[in-house]
Amino acid sequence: MPLSKQDIDHIALLARLEVAPQEKGDYVEKLSQIIELVEQLRAVDTTGVVPMAHPLDMVQRLRPDSVTETDQRDYLQQNARDTENGLYTVPKVIE
């Protein structure tokens, strides 16, 4: 099932990616090839098969409820492009 340009627009929006008009054809073609590859799975009979979410047969380990982290704000904010008064800043959000 080949993807349409609308499909590309929708998933680009979900993924917060921009596909320039001149690239769109290439994305449609290559993603369609990939989808065609994975569509082979439809032919496999999986009746009664339990989905495998994880390779290890282990259960979640629980951590004791204790505070082990200390304030590293100034150190960590060195990696951010825009901060002020200890806050990370982004373009104005209107709700």
Binding site: I35, V44, T46
Partner: peptide
Amino acid sequence: VKRRIMTGAYVLSAGYYDAYYLQAQKVRQL
């Protein structure tokens, strides 16, 4: 990277999850 992110968003998106992602997990088990 963009292609893979978009492929991933597609196979998880509403209406496609069972046919792609869940089926892949089952074949993974096989």
